[in-house]
């Protein structure tokens, strides 16, 4: 087992300590200072700690750092920093698709992965994609509205996702 691993986080090559019991979530928080992936259930049941690994949404509380060798990790911080995804952030803010806000980065990260693979999602696509994310405030009805608007805006902005 290597003591450190190399991976790519938000487009930047990084090295992380890879203690055998260290989760990706803990590494992001304690080694990288990235706290957008939130700790809620600690057992892969709530989606709040979602990050994107090699294009697929995964639960960082249930992934060990040592499994991430050579992987490309996108966190909410990376998504927010990419102007391409501003319409998604804007739509979430516009539609109040959050209350206390704790679970919101997890939802938004999952939504980003959905739009990545399905640039024109239907409402049912949105609901199914977000079925693994828990919001304790019950904001569910607002998410699909935000995602659909974001997808529309992204598609209409110079080719957006399809371009």
């Amino acid at each position: 087992m290597p003591e450190t691993i190399e991976l790519n986080i938000n487009g930047i090559a990084k090295q992380l300590d890879a203690a055998p019991n260290r989760t990706l979530h803990d590494a992001l928080q304690y080694q990288m200072g990235l706290t957008g992936a939130k700790h809620m259930c600690d057992r892969g049941a709530c989606g709040s700690c979602t990050v994107i690994m090699d294009g697929r949404p995964v639960l960082s509380c249930s992934i060990l750092v040592c499994e991430c060798e050579g992987k490309a990790i996108e966190t909410i911080e990376g998504i927010a920093a990419d102007p391409k995804w501003k319409p998604l952030v804007d739509a979430y803010c516009k539609w109040d698709a959050m209350q206390c806000g704790y679970c919101t980065p997890g939802f938004l990260t999952t939504a980003k992965a959905l739009i990545d693979r399905s640039p024109n999602p239907s409402e049912q696509d949105c609901r199914e994609a977000l079925a693994g994310n828990i919001c304790m405030c019950g904001t569910y009805p607002r998410h699909a509205t935000a995602i659909l608007e974001a997808a529309r805006n992204m598609n209409s902005e110079g080719g957006g996702l399809n371009g």
């Binding site: 928080q29 966190t75 909410i76 803010c93 959050m98 206390c100």
Partner: peptide, 21 residues
Amino acid sequence: PPGVVSYAMATGLAKYGVDYV
């Protein structure tokens, strides 16, 4: 209008007690 701190909550900038290191 959007919430004044919605951007911070949506993008993970918002810190809760458990986030502080």
